[in-house]
Design a protein around this nucleic acid. Structure first.
Length: 149
DNA sequence: GCCAACGTTGGC
DNA sequence: GCCAACGTTGGC
């Protein structure tokens, strides 16, 4: 059982949306490292911090849980989708995604607040230039963050 | 296989 | 809107 941090732009899909829907396919990941995390390391029951990015108040806003392991992302075959990938094929799908279910909201633990925690200094999300949308979280970091929520 | 050009991410 | 950082692409 592992811990993760998963970024989403709230204008695209927010914690409100996940709370309403109950569960969601984490579609649209088009980065190999993030895909590989989903394919190779994420399994049912893994816990994840839900993080709002590219918004007025970036930070952790909730917790979700992996409810289905990785399977092909249908948006890569959809010509009308912004995630359409002409280089992918149904025989050899390039992109996968897991499904997550809503666990609970947290208060907003902002990026600025996370930066102020020495115990979290080496979190991937806090490193400059970090762009990965899915990153592993150490158990110690997870515990520390839960205390902040 | 190198690397310059390009596109995207994401905080500010 | 700016811009630093990074991943991907494609010519060679």
């Amino acid at each position: 059982m592992r811990y993760w941090l998963m970024k989403s732009e709230p204008e695209d899909y927010s914690i409100d949306d996940l709370e309403r829907d109950g569960r969601a396919g984490w579609t649209g990941v088009r980065n190999y490292q993030a895909r590989n995390f989903m394919r190779d390391q994420m399994s049912i029951g893994d816990q994840a911090l839900f993080y709002h990015s590219s918004c007025a108040e970036p930070g952790i806003v909730g917790i979700c849980e992996v409810s289905r392991p990785a399977y092909p992302d249908a948006t890569q075959f959809d010509r009308k989708s912004k995630y359409f990938d002409p280089k992918s094929s149904r025989d050899a799908p390039r992109w996968l995604h897991v499904e997550v279910k809503f666990v609970r909201r947290t208060r907003l633990v902002s990026l600025a607040e996370l930066r102020g925690e020495p115990a979290l200094a080496h979190m991937r999300i806090l490193q400059r230039g970090n762009r990965l949308s899915i990153t592993p979280v150490d158990p110690a970091e997870w515990k520390h963050i839960l205390k902040l929520t």
